[in-house]
Nucleic acid binder design. Structure first.
Lengths: 254, 254
DNA sequence: CGCGTTCTTGAGGATTGTCAATGGAAGTGG
DNA sequence: CCACTTCCATTGACAATCCTCAAGAACGCG
């Protein structure tokens, strides 16, 4: 049932069938259904359990005291809501459901016990955390260095890559629950400018976005425009061969 | 000798004297001296050891293929260079020494063995990783939402808080090895605009910066201007009481 | 002292933001 | 099912922030 989670498990970790069994068994029990707009995590929470998002999207965000909101990252299916799986601190940010969302829950104790018994599972969660950190770093580069057009394009490239990983972007198309104000909060732009940037991406024949459906018309073109970092897709960090490929891919752009 | 590292150990973890002994013993051996401009980490590296920065500053950065550079975070004394202490992946970014730098090294195996024996030490590294993640998230908010003036102010606030933690900002003053081009790469601004923003901060009587010395003249004023998030300072995440304080502190600003 | 790096300044322009208004889509309640 | 409300997308006009280019001054290093 947690199809996408299984897919990510296979890509990220090298789990034995029994390991996967054990993990999924813990997840299966009481699924949590939350409507759009629910808080998945509130700032200040101390999570006693670890939750995996099975369907829907979450927005991980922070506020400035005057109301400015910045989205830190998007929580997609197979992602873990709690970033502090290993150190149980209080949450320093919130997560809200951008769409109706289903979560699976594991108690911290059960997970800890499982990780102690099965190093491969432990490694999976560590690996996943590392991936999340990589995404945060990419977000900094994205917002700090890219123009509005590149920034938006890059966001779509990242989303596509991540969804493709879990098999949720068939036909270069996927459901896209964010409103333009969310895109603005994610990219550090104004909603008006997001609107105009989207129009430009459409005009360039790179994407289609309407009715909560995003379709990428030209992946290569979009990635070139975005100066997309393909290392994100391979989730292993830049391997020796991929470091070379990195050079190659990017030299085309420049 | 690694005075600042000891200080951070005390603040972040609750290590027993013997734990601290054991950790520092591993660190003491062969210190690494690197001149300004050295690569502490190159993208693609697979680190076989974990290194703690004892003195100097490191710049953690990424390039876009057309040469744009974004600094992800600053590596200060007592910080760990390798963010993948627990999952030994390849580095997806580089670190360069912004000043003459001294590193202490622990082999991965030794550290792993030590962490297996001493849970408190393991927890320290997990805690430190979590802190680093928090800083990355704050950087996203900073670049995404704050104006140039606020952004620069916030950067100085963060630096001061982090240096103060390790006792390296006596008298609200500390050595500041970055050039304006570095500040630009850290904040996503142009060097020219960094220059003008610095002038404004000086004119507002908030800071003094010359001869590689940064002095904060008015911490409260600087933090108010920056909309500084004080949770960074308390490294525990927002506690129930600090969540309240969070409200209080920030309402003054708004 | 001389040279390269860094800092500073000016002018002009491009990108992006703000304000305000309109129209459509979606959801609500009767 | 329709009227009503609310949210969301879109557009225009204008303004502000920030960037680029370019040149000169100051600083620091050998």
């Amino acid at each position: 049932m947690p199809h996408q989670f299984l897919r990510k498990l296979e890509r990220l970790g090298s789990l034995s069938p029994t390991d996967k069994e054990a993990l999924v068994a813990l997840l299966r029990r009481p699924l949590i259904n939350l409507p759009k707009g629910s808080d998945l995590i509130r700032i200040g929470d101390i999570a006693s359990s670890i939750r995996v998002l099975l369907s829907g999207w979450g927005l991980r965000y922070k506020f400035l005291p005057d109301g400015r909101r910045q989205i830190l990252s998007l929580v997609l299916p197979a992602d873990i809501c709690e970033m502090n799986v290993f150190s149980s601190l209080q949450m320093d940010h919130s997560i809200i459901a951008a769409a109706p969302t289903v979560l699976a829950e594991i108690s911290r104790e059960d997970l800890q016990a499982l990780m102690a018994r099965k190093p491969a599972i432990r490694n999976y969660f560590l690996r996943d955390l590392q991936l999340t950190i990589g995404l945060l770093q990419e977000a900094i580069v994205n917002i700090g260095q890219r123009t509005a057009l590149e920034r938006m394009a890059n966001l779509f490239c990242e989303l596509h890559a991540r969804l493709d990983l879990i098999g949720s972007a068939p036909d270069m198309q996927f459901e896209f629950p964010l409103v333009q104000a969310d895109l603005a909060a994610a990219t550090g732009l104004s909603t008006v400018h997001v609107n105009r940037t989207l129009q430009e991406l459409r005009h360039l024949q790179l994407i289609t976005l309407s009715g909560k459906q995003l379709r990428i018309l030209d992946v290569a073109g979009l990635r070139a425009l975005a100066l997309f970092n393909p290392d994100l897709v391979r989730l292993t960090g830049p391997s020796q061969t991929s470091a070379d490929r990195f050079q190659l891919d990017w030299s085309i752009v420049g």
